[in-house]
Computed example of a mutant assay.
Amino acid sequence: MASIPDTAQTAYDRAAGVRALALPAIPEELRALEADDLLEAAERTLEAIDAHDLCIADENFTELEATGARFTNCFLSCCDFSGALFTDTVFESCDFANTYFDGAGFTRCTFKNCKLTGASFMEASMESVSLEDCTLAYGAFNRCRWWAFEARRCDFSGADMAEMDLHYIILDDDRFIGTSFFRTPLLGIDFSTCQLEGVALSDTMAEIYGTKMNLYQAAALARHLGVIIAE
């Protein structure tokens, strides 16, 4: 008798390849950036800057470009960075709550201990980006592209992550409670160390094909399919 191949496992193995993240290249010498400098910047281009303890809200920074930059302990809530480009940039202990990054590009960037609650990253692109101990609850990531992306101990609860393009994703101890993955293929992603509860999927649940989960996560999703789990 011929055996039936485990097609889901095969698909997962093919898609779960790891791409090493390229870390931000930060120049040794950085120029201190004051709030007035950022607000009055004519060319909207920042190079080799150190932004520390800035406190700015409700300002327009659309299409701003930053490279070789460091933002530390900055409050930039409710600002608009739509179309901005960040390359080789570090964000640490910053507050970007309810800020717009729609259509923005992030390449070789790191976020550590940042507040991004309610932030919008619709159609943004993130390549070689890592997040650690960040809050992204209720964020909008619709049609966002992640390529070589890591998130560790981050909270994506209530986030809208519909129709995303995900490749080479590493997740560890993250929270996805009430998160929407509508029409986002999760092939090759390992959720087994994460909290995955009450997520929104399409009626066919095709999004989770080739996804790795622990026993409890799989059982919870099976109940949505009408499967009765023996105790």
Rank of each mutant, 00 (worst) to 15 (best):
P5Y: 12
R70S: 08
Y216F: 15
L76F: 05
P27A: 00
R183F: 05
F156I: 12
A119N: 11
E29H: 03
I56V: 12
Y138V: 14
A104D: 07
T99N: 12
L116D: 06
R108G: 00
R14N: 08
C94N: 13
A148W: 05
F149Q: 06
D80W: 12
F191T: 08
D88I: 01
D37C: 07
E47C: 02
D53F: 02
R143K: 10
I4T: 14
D173G: 00
D173A: 03
L171F: 02
F86G: 03
L221H: 11
R31W: 02
D13A: 01
D58M: 11
P24C: 04
H167I: 03
D95L: 05
D160S: 15
D174W: 00
L166A: 06
F71V: 05
D173Q: 03
M164H: 04
N214V: 11
M122W: 14
N73E: 13
V129C: 11
L30K: 01
G198S: 07
C55M: 05
A119H: 11
N142S: 12
A42V: 15
A11F: 04
E65G: 02
S128C: 01
F91H: 04
A159M: 12
M213T: 06
Y138T: 14
E59F: 06
G68R: 04
A151I: 08
K115E: 14
N113G: 02
L64G: 07
A222H: 15
D174E: 04
S180M: 11
D102W: 10
W146N: 04
T7Q: 10
M205Y: 08
S77R: 14
M126P: 08
D80P: 10
C79L: 07
L33E: 07
A22M: 00
A97T: 13
A32E: 11
A140Y: 15
N214Y: 14
A42Y: 12
L54N: 10
T72R: 12
T89C: 07
A119G: 11
T135C: 11
I208A: 00
S130P: 01
E43N: 13
R175E: 04
E163I: 05
A140K: 14
F191K: 06
V90G: 02
L64Y: 06
E231P: 00
C144I: 06
F75D: 05
S120Y: 14
E29Y: 03
L136H: 12
D203F: 00
H52I: 08
F156C: 13
R44T: 04
L46S: 06
Y168A: 10
L136F: 09
G226L: 10
R108D: 02
E163M: 10
E207M: 03
C79V: 10
N60W: 05
D133H: 09
R153M: 02
L171H: 05
L201H: 12
A2D: 13
R143F: 07
S3V: 15
G158P: 12
G188M: 00
E197P: 02
C74E: 14
A32R: 09
A124K: 09
G158C: 15
V90P: 02
I56M: 04
Q217S: 12
W146T: 01
R108S: 06
E197H: 00
T45L: 04
T72D: 13
T184R: 03
F156L: 15
I56S: 07
